[in-house]
Amino acid sequence: MNLKRTTLIPLDDDSLAESIFKSFIEKEMMLLMVIIGDTDTIREAIPKADNLAQLSYFKMERWVLWVRNYEILSETLKKHLKASDADKSKEDYNNIKCLCFSPILDKVDGIILKNAELSYASLQQSFFKAQAHDALAVNI
């Protein structure tokens, strides 16, 4: 898997995982997609998400974080989900396989549940939903 804009979160070091996540979330003007799990469908979806992360709309960068299990970063992600008012944000964390952070306010949006397909369309929609969250906060 030749990934250009995807970072794999380490599973054996909680503090390193936290600091990697923190470093990405603190980047301004960057949309961050988090894909959770390590199933066949997730492995098929990662290259698609990586491809989509190469796109940039209205000068916003994109990046993908691959969190390969539901333990690592769970507390941090749950905290962000709790603070979110996005559709499906109140779902059980273990039932979510993809979410996106908005580029400026770092709010969670574009949540995809386990029973949904990770296609180009759904992943692109997830990126767009997160970016749309902060669209009106853009000063132009």
Binding site: F58, E117, F128, A135, A137
Partner: peptide, 26 residues
């Protein structure tokens, strides 16, 4: 998309349309 600098409301319109488009696709 062709605009060099889309305004905030234009961006909002873009995302709204694209959301509808991608929903139709799915």
């Amino acid at each position: 998309l062709e605009k060099q600098l889309a305004t905030a409301s234009e961006q909002a319109t873009f995302f709204e349309i694209m959301n509808g488009f991608l929903t139709d696709i799915q």
